[in-house]
Amino acid sequence: MTGKRLKREYPLHLLVLPSFVLALLFSYGPIFGLVLAFKDFSVVKGFGRSPWNGFDNFDYMFQLPDIWQVVGNTVYISAMKIVAGLIVPITVALLLNEVTKNVFKRWVQTLIYLPHFLSWIILGGILIDILSPTSGIVNQFLGVFGVKPIFFLGSNAWFPGVLVASDVWKEFGFSTIVYLAALTGINPALYEAAVIDGATRWKQTLHITLPGMTPVIVLLATLSLGNVLNAGFDQVFNLYSAQVYDSGDIIDTLVYRLGIEQAQYSLATAVGLMKSGVSVLLISSSYYLAYRLANYRIF
């Protein structure tokens, strides 16, 4: 019996095997590598022979002068992104839904989701160019109205705003399409019935369209909770400079500087471990919430 099952199932195990080995090495390997956080790692002694040092790295981490500033920046930036990233696409989806000419609708959709597919290297390069205080087109445009040149990427007052705005610019088109896909699932008979009852377009939007979108909105909102500690490394790293560390330095960029630039491996791992730990809690509870509220399952 067992032999027969083994014979029937072993090809399936074989199919999983390559993925299993790679995931074991490159996903589970780094998880076990987290023990670095409890060691005083030195490249000379290597991974195994570096001495344990308990929670010293964590003590040191909490003594870093700007650690709470960095945590605050991270949460602030990502929270703003989550809120703006919900409101803007929902609004645009509702507006696009009112468009009757399909050709126009398709063109708008195609243009607004373009930035989603470009990397932050490309977009960062573009933003640095157009936001330049001297030759950038944005400051030239503002100059027409007598506004003095603003160093958007070099001032702590502007930097978080630029991060949120450019993130919305990159992603709103793509999210809009997800919401529009949800709208196509609404039964047209509901609208016909509403018109007979004398409902205006506004009333229809309020009482049919929005409730029809609610499940998707709830789902995406809860899933985004898991990202509260991810303020967007790719974006920040390519836009920030030491001038805006006060407002723009986030956990991931701090880990990068500590670990890769300054080679403080153990300390950087400790900071990363704290982040991973909190993230796991956030992601698990967001999946749980999504399951309870929207009946969403990964499998």
């Binding site: 399936l12 195990h13 590598g33 670990g259």
Partner: peptide
């Protein structure tokens, strides 16, 4: 039909939830 499935599913889903972070990732590679 595939007894190992439950184990594998958990094995792979966990990799979506937990990550070792930058430095251990670099060290492994």
């Amino acid at each position: 039909k595939f007894r190992g499935r439950t184990f594998y599913v958990w094995f792979f889903v966990l990799t979506m939830l937990v990550s070792g972070g930058l430095i251990p990732w670099y060290m492994v590679i």
